[in-house]
Amino acid sequence: MTKRAVLIAGPTASGKSGFAMALAKQLGGVIVNADSMQVYDGLRILTARPSEEDEQALPHRLYGHVSSDTRYSVGGWLRDVSPTLQDIWDNKQLPILVGGTGLYFKALTEGIAETPHISEAEHAAFVADHADIDIQDLQERLARLDPVSANKIERNDRQRTLRALMVLEQTGQSLSDWQRSAEQQALLPLAQTVHRVLMPADRSWLYARIEKRFLAMLDDGGEAEALNLLRKNLATGLPVMNAISLPHYATHVNDPETIDRAGVVEKSVRDTRRYAKRQMTWFRNQMKDWPRLDPMEWVNDSDKMLKDLQQIAQELEKQA
């Protein structure tokens, strides 16, 4: 098979996984993870990884393959995805990469440089989301997660502190690690792919889905999953410890008077909404040329998803 692939990006809770599975069924594809949190074991529910039933029904790769005590990054993902893609092509199958980590897609199709590009709009959105957090708390968090960068930033320098934290959140790799990395070339140029971004027209629709899904996660065992991971006493600076809800559960376990269970739920939903907002900002600024799909249309028109799937199939045929 020609080295082609389908890339499906989108914010959390936008319906990416379901769309990718429908596409894989139609085209006989292999679903490959492009989400920085779904690589970790032990957090299937809270990171919204495909269920065991889904993974048995269709081939999935690079999900839950990284130990939670590992500091994984975009560089590690590129090293893992390269032989994965080659194996899929060798078996004359189609890789369908799906996830919400925009930097993974950008690194895959454009390569990565020594430092990540962060637009003014993205930085402004991140600053606004963290406006209610004291600078001392921000610096303490950075010191835990990236002590090398923290030591280089002057006390009370809020802008540089936030930028370092933003790099960590969006890339899974510290700013100091980025600065030590060598340039890497693109593994899969965008021209060899059919690519889409799922972008709902109404943000409130996505926010409602986020809250509903998080409550369902708790009912399905998400809280027990979080507590089991916390019992491992992993270093707080590990990327997995920054997964949605884990910091709040950690505070709840260590000091229940500071935050009760209802507070954990409220703050976790709030954080997920903020994360989705930052994802959409990234897609608007960094993936401007990617065609958009509105998942809200699939709800109102039962035939719309089928039409979108058929359009992707037709574009693949033209590339063959």
Rank of each mutant, 00 (worst) to 15 (best):
M1T: 14
L7H: 05
T12K: 09
A13Q: 06
A13G: 06
S14Y: 04
K16H: 08
G18W: 03
A22L: 06
A24H: 01
V30T: 10
I31Y: 07
V32L: 02
Q38T: 14
Y40E: 06
G42K: 13
L43Q: 10
L46V: 15
T47Y: 06
A48T: 11
E55P: 04
Y63P: 00
S67E: 06
D69R: 09
V74F: 15
D80F: 05
V81C: 11
V81K: 11
S82Y: 03
P83I: 15
I88K: 05
Q93P: 00
Q93V: 01
L94G: 05
L94V: 08
G99H: 11
G102S: 10
L103H: 11
Y104M: 14
F105I: 06
E110F: 04
G111Q: 03
P116Q: 14
H117P: 00
S119A: 02
S119G: 00
H123R: 14
V127E: 14
D129H: 05
H130N: 12
H130L: 14
H130V: 09
D134F: 06
Q139N: 04
E140Y: 08
P147V: 12
V148F: 04
A150Q: 10
K152L: 11
N156C: 10
Q159I: 14
T161G: 11
T161V: 14
L162T: 09
A164K: 00
L165A: 00
L165N: 11
L175S: 13
S176D: 10
R180Y: 00
E183P: 12
Q184N: 09
A186G: 02
L187E: 12
T193D: 07
V194Y: 10
H195S: 07
Y207I: 00
R213L: 08
F214T: 07
M217I: 01
L218G: 01
D220C: 00
E225V: 00
L230T: 07
R231V: 02
T236N: 12
G237S: 10
P239T: 08
N242F: 01
I244F: 04
H248A: 02
D260P: 08
D260R: 09
V264M: 04
S268P: 11
V269D: 02
Y275T: 13
K277T: 15
M280T: 01
W282T: 05
N285Q: 14
M287E: 06
D289V: 08
W290Q: 04
L293I: 15
P295E: 08
E297R: 12
D303M: 15
D303F: 12
K304P: 02
K307T: 11
D308P: 10
A313W: 10
A313G: 09
E317V: 13
E317G: 08
